Simulated scan of single mutants.
Amino acid sequence: MEQQKLPNSTLILIFGILSIITCCCYGIVGLALGIVAIVLATKATQLYITNPEAYTGYSNVKTGKVLAIIGIILSVLYLLFVIWILLVFGWDTMQDQELMQERMREFMGQ
């Protein structure tokens, strides 16, 4: 029997990489890509476990899953940071650069 590539193994790897790269897009894009990569990796892993001799590309799945987990962690941390900034300074302050600089000086105690 000829081995075939695991479905979505390259896509899982790409989504894992992109979840790390896009974690600074307010955390939302990286979080979404990471979750999709983990769901696809779980399905591919289940398929591989049922018949490991029939498939290749499992290393891409494992690497993509690890990268997706890292991307999710970074995205969640960045999202929490953005929420904290909005809670501390407010939306209006974020829109006005001079007001933001003034609030930052106050926050730093200067």
Rank of each mutant, 00 (worst) to 15 (best):
L74I: 02
V61C: 03
L74Q: 03
Q46D: 14
L47A: 11
Q3W: 09
T63R: 08
E2T: 14
Q4S: 14
I69Q: 04
I35W: 04
G34I: 00
I17W: 01
I17M: 06
W84E: 13
T22A: 09
L99E: 07
L13P: 00
T45W: 07
L79Y: 11
I38G: 00
N8C: 01
A32M: 10
I14F: 06
G64R: 00
Y26Q: 13
L77R: 00
L87R: 10
G71F: 02
I85V: 12
V36M: 12
V66N: 11
R105T: 12
E2G: 08
T50L: 10
T50C: 08
L11S: 06
T45N: 12
G90D: 08
T93W: 03
K5C: 08
Y58K: 12
M1I: 14
T93S: 07
N8T: 01
A32F: 14
L86A: 15
A37G: 03
L80H: 07
Q46H: 14
G16P: 01
G30H: 04
Q46E: 15
D92M: 10
L31Q: 04
I69L: 08
L31P: 00
N51C: 09
E53S: 13
M94Q: 12
M100L: 10
T10W: 06
M94Y: 11
T45D: 07
Y78A: 09
G27R: 01
T63P: 01
I28S: 06
L99R: 05
L18K: 03
Q110A: 10
E53V: 09
L86N: 15
A32I: 13
L11C: 03
G30F: 04
L80C: 15
A41T: 04
G109H: 06
A32L: 12
V36S: 05
G71E: 00
T42M: 07
F89K: 07
M100F: 10
T63M: 14
W91K: 12
Q101D: 07
G34D: 00
V61D: 00
T50D: 15
W91G: 12
E106A: 15
L33S: 02
A68C: 02
K5N: 12
A41D: 04
Q110L: 14
I73Y: 00
C25N: 06
T50G: 10
E2L: 14
Y48R: 06
T42S: 11
Y48N: 09
R105H: 13
I70N: 02
I70Q: 01
L80S: 14
R105F: 12
L33V: 05
V61M: 03
I20G: 00
K5S: 12
V76R: 00
L40E: 04
G57C: 05
C24D: 08
M108L: 13
T22N: 11
C25I: 07
G27A: 02
I72R: 00
C24K: 06
T10N: 13
L77T: 09
M100W: 07
K65I: 01
Q97P: 04
I21V: 13
G16W: 02
T93P: 03
I35K: 04
V76F: 03
C24G: 09
I70V: 15
S19H: 08
Q101A: 05
V61H: 01
N60Q: 14
Y48E: 05
P52A: 07
L33D: 01
G64P: 04
